[in-house]
Nucleic acid binder design. Structure first.
Lengths: 108, 108
DNA sequence: CAGATATATGAGCAAGTACGCATATATTAT
DNA sequence: ATAATATATGCGTACTTGCTCATATATCTG
C-alpha cells in the first residue's frame, strides 16, 4: 500500500519573524509611489526639497515628511547649502532593488 | 563672475506616477512580514494553508486572507488536492526580489 | 530691521491594512 | 447521514499611513 504524503509530514522552512520584519521594513520604503519617484529622481542626481516637491506635484510639507522618513531609515542624506538642503541617495541596496524592480515591471 | 548653479536650473528626471504606482504595488507585497514569510516558505516548496498557518503562528483565516491577496496579484497559484489546497509561487520576479532583499539584509 | 524663501515638524483626519470572529462550502471519515 | 477537517470570505476593529494645515526655524534680500 502506498502512503501518499499530502500535507504536514515534512517540516516547513520559513524565515523567522524578526528577519522577515526587517526585510518587510526595507520593502516598505518602496511600497509608496511618492517615495519610489523620489528615489528614481535621486538615482539620477542630488536634488533639493523644492525641486522634488515640484517634480512630484506635491506640497513642500508632504515632500519633507517623506524625506524625513527616508532620512530616518538612512537611505538618503542631506547637505545644507545656504537655505537649500540638498538630498542624495545614501544606500546602494535601495537603488539596486529599485532598478531590479523597475526592470521586472518593464519586461512584462 | 561665476554663477554657481544651486537649484532648479536643470530639469528633474523622475519616474511618471503610473509606472511608479505599478512598481510600488509590486513592492507592497513584500512590505508585510507575514507575506514575506509565506513567500520565503513557498520558495522552498509548495505548501497547504494549514502548514503555512501553523508555521506562521496565525489563524487559518488570516493566512487564507493573505493567500487570497497573493492569488489576486497572480504571485501564487493553488491546486486543489482532496480537501487540501496546495499553494506554490507563480512569479519569478517576486522570488528574485525577495532573494536580493534578503541578501542585502544579511550582508549588513 | 522687515519680508520673502526654504525647510521641518506636530496635530489631525480620511483612507487603507491586517487580524480575528463568525459563518459558509466542500471534502473525507465514521 | 453526521461529524470532522480544510479552506474561503464578509464584517468589525485596532492600527498604520500619507496627506494637509498651522506653525516654527533658518537663511537670504532689500
Amino acid at each position: 500500500m502506498v502512503t501518499e504524503v499530502i500535507c504536514g509530514e515534512q517540516g516547513v522552512m520559513m524565515l523567522d519573524e524578526m528577519t522577515a520584519s526587517a526585510l518587510a521594513e526595507t520593502f516598505k520604503v518602496l511600497s509608496d509611489s511618492t517615495r519610489v519617484r523620489i528615489i528614481s529622481a535621486l538615482v539620477e542626481r542630488e536634488l533639493c526639497v523644492h525641486e522634488l516637491s515640484e517634480a512630484l506635484g506635491l506640497s513642500h510639507s508632504a515632500t519633507s515628511h517623506q524625506l524625513a522618513m527616508l532620512r530616518e531609515m538612512r537611505l538618503v542624506a542631506a547637505t545644507k547649502r545656504g537655505r537649500h538642503k540638498i538630498y542624495r541617495l545614501d544606500d546602494e541596496h535601495i537603488a539596486d532593488l529599485f532598478q531590479q524592480g523597475l526592470a521586472h515591471i518593464l519586461h512584462t
